[in-house]
């Protein structure tokens, strides 16, 4: 019996493998999906049974729910990353914002009782406003004092179509008043016999796009916060590895500031920089489509 199963809308599209333990987490999604299949099939059977029945404006035929079936139709197995083609230009309209830590995980703690898990929520709220002002839909991984796991946060992003992922952190080191963007280093392609991308290498096909997004956001941050680097830094950030979307981590320095107000003053600038960076990235956004899938370039 295979240990892995591909689930979730985007996971199916890119053939991302999830471990069996993740299946438990996605049981609800699967059940909903199966219910959706059933409903879709029933709707199709009904429409086929009455093919000649004209749809009248007074009694319109139920519109087929394209979203559910498309998410349920298993795509052909994804090609290995080496075969992945960036050919499908898709609209980037969603930003998944991840305020790091939360719950019992307070993150970095500094002077005057500053807690990273609380401060990132303030930053995230402002970033959300700035992104919405630019027309983006914003999905938050947490809005209260809870602590989703790394995989839960990634799953939130991986379930979106046409999204980028931004995780927000406050450091306990670094020059106060600066901000850095991190992207993961290259992830070697999987040797999976079925040419599927494992969950723990979901970021693999997106590394190039993440670097581009990271550089654009870092450029905006450097304009607003003197002493910040001019290009994105490379670091194996755990949260980014399982995210199947262009993904960056933004870390602000730091919780070791004389006053909380010093951090609060950075909030509008950080929000504006992230929003402007994503706007600049939007024209470059392409969706990697494995070769052999509809819309994918044949090698």
């Amino acid at each position: 019996m295979r240990q892995e199963i591909a689930v979730s809308r985007k996971a199916l599209r890119f053939g991302i493998l999830l471990h069996v333990r993740d299946v438990v987490r996605y049981r609800t999604t699967l059940l909903t999906a199966l219910l959706g299949v059933g409903l879709a099939l029933a709707a199709m059977a009904t429409s086929q049974a009455k093919p000649q029945a004209p749809s009248s404006p007074a009694n319109p035929a139920p519109a087929p729910t394209t979203a559910a079936p498309s998410s349920l139709t298993r795509q052909p197995a994804a090609a290995a990353p080496s075969q992945t083609q960036f050919v499908s230009r898709s609209a980037l309209n969603i930003v998944v914002l991840d305020p790091a830590h939360g719950g019992i995980d307070l993150g970095a703690r500094g002077t005057e009782g500053i807690r990273e898990s609380e401060v990132v929520l303030v930053f995230a709220a402002e970033v959300r406003k700035a992104l919405q002002a630019q027309g983006f839909q914003v999905v938050m991984t947490r809005e209260g004092n809870d602590n989703p796991s790394f995989d839960d946060r990634s799953a939130r992003a991986n379930a979106q179509h046409g999204a980028v992922f931004v995780t927000l952190h406050i450091a306990s080191t670094g020059l106060a008043g600066t901000a850095r963007v991190y992207v993961v280093p290259d992830i070697p392609p999987s040797n999976d016999a079925n040419a599927l991308i494992p969950w723990d290498r979901a970021q693999g096909p997106f590394v190039g796009l993440s670097h581009l997004l990271g550089d654009l956001v870092q450029e905006e941050l450097a304009k607003r916060f003197r002493g910040s680097p001019s290009i994105a830094q490379v670091a194996p950030v755990r949260q980014l590895r399982t995210t199947a979307a262009p993904a960056i981590a933004v870390e602000i320095s730091s919780v070791i500031v004389p006053e909380r107000a010093d951090l609060d003053r950075m909030v509008p600038g950080v929000a504006e920089a992230i929003a402007q960076g994503i706007v600049a990235f939007k024209p470059s956004y392409v969706l990697p489509v494995p070769a052999g899938t509809p819309g994918g370039k044949q090698p």
Partner: peptide
């Protein structure tokens, strides 16, 4: 260790 991407990477 001080918590953070920068300090851990260092």
């Amino acid at each position: 260790i001080p918590s953070g991407i920068q300090s851990e990477q260092l």
